[in-house]
Design a protein around this nucleic acid. Structure first.
Lengths: 231, 231
DNA sequence: ATACTTAGTAGTAGTTTGCTACTAAGTATA
DNA sequence: TATACTTAGTAGCAAACTACTACTAAGTAT
């Protein structure tokens, strides 16, 4: 038995844990090299010491679940003001070998652009792993949680605008189409795609810098329509 | 201050509750008189004594969340083997005035038919209230939870087969169309509707009993295709 | 017979989707 | 300077789906 594991068992008192604890776990997605990637960190403690895991934290009595997510993003990844949404609550009895922990999973989306802005060294980016190449163990039920997140964003890409969250404010239509294709996991027809998103974007008068071929026009997301009245 | 309320406050010891408790709350839908209705019960205890509330229960350390839902359905409504699915987890700090309770909300669907089968007196059916006529107070954040459930089944009716859960095994196409129209909240065109669901149903050779007009053919849901291979 | 009610089908215009083929604007190189 | 190469962007058509009107079918009521 490893040292850390023994220490954990010695300090474990069941009566401390006789009702479920609640944690949040965060599936933070971004795009790198045309692939969907997810933030993972080796665990520092038992169980699963050294195994890659999603960032998470216990929910404090005095904070809402959403606030726990914001705190987790800020404390563990130094990220702020990004899109996140509740995913699913995982509550199998034995999902954590220590004690009963119910995990409210959230997913979050951030552009690689914003990650570099927050952390110019690019260190954060090295913690992201392509979801299609996770041929390594994950702690707890975190593989299930990631898969649940991938399925959710694939579904939501069809009828919401979450794809924009993975791009900077300035983007080209080939870039935007690539994001949709990655999220949906299938190729799209250029002409149809453009007709469909035409009313969600506004063209700027700028073009991409010359790059060995025809430059592309730069677009922005159209601001959400005001819910206006006369008030 | 009412008697029950004082008693509650006298017995309240904060230190008993210094981590969030986890409960499940259940939004059980059925159809009555062409309206979507939800199961509600007056609360027997403070807070919100006498106010209508969703059935719910605390999650025990030794059961999964889904098992807590099954137990709640069985103990509180005497229902078994019906369709249910996780809805959303509600965790505002002050959603329960007693203490911090995080509620994992589920929705469930049952045919009025099955309710009568389980409880031939029809007593259970009197606990269902039309979701469009809930002009009375609800306990806690239960109105929000019900609205969340209504929105979810409206969305899922579009791309899943949940509508069938609200009908008995034998149904007619006008009945099925009515269910879709109630869930989606909009009228559908008969001919188009029939083309679209044609591959999800099988006709029987039976017709509805004469009822003052042309009888209708009885259909069943087509069994889900086997995920077969050669094994 | 005929009127009334609900069940069910035919057909058509307009829109969306799947797909092929083209033109446009840059660079690289012969 | 022509032409090949690359990526950006548009045109257009057939098939499928949607919105809608109009019909026929099968029962009951008078």
């Amino acid at each position: 038995m490893a040292n850390g594991e023994r220490e954990f068992l010695l300090n474990y008192h069941k009566e401390d844990y006789d009702r479920p604890s609640v944690a949040v776990d965060l599936v933070l997605f971004t795009l790198q090299d045309g692939k969907l990637t997810v933030f993972l960190q080796p665990r520092e403690e038992h169980p699963y010491q050294g195994v890659l895991a999603l960032p998470g934290t216990f929910v404090d009595t005095r904070e809402s679940i959403d606030d726990a997510v914001r705190r987790c993003l800020l404390q563990k990844i130094r990220l702020d003001g990004i899109y996140f949404e509740q995913l699913y609550t995982f509550g199998a009895v034995d999902r954590d070998p220590r004690m009963r922990i119910i995990s409210v999973a959230y997913y979050a989306l951030v552009s690689a652009d914003k990650l570099l802005e927050m952390d110019p060294t690019g260190d954060v980016l090295t913690h992201f792993y392509p979801v299609c190449e996770m041929d390594f163990p994950l702690a707890f039920d975190h593989r299930t949680i990631v898969e649940c997140g991938v399925a959710r964003i694939a579904g939501k890409a069809e009828y919401t605008d979450i794809a924009f969250e993975l791009l900077p404010a300035d983007f080209t239509l080939p870039q935007l189409q690539a994001v949709y294709e990655i999220l949906l996991g299938k190729p799209l027809y250029k002409a149809n795609f453009r007709k469909k998103i035409a009313d969600k974007i506004v063209a700027t008068d700028r073009m991409t810098a010359p790059d060995g071929h025809r430059p592309s026009q730069i677009y922005n997301k159209k601001p959400a329509p005001e819910v206006s009245g006369d008030q």
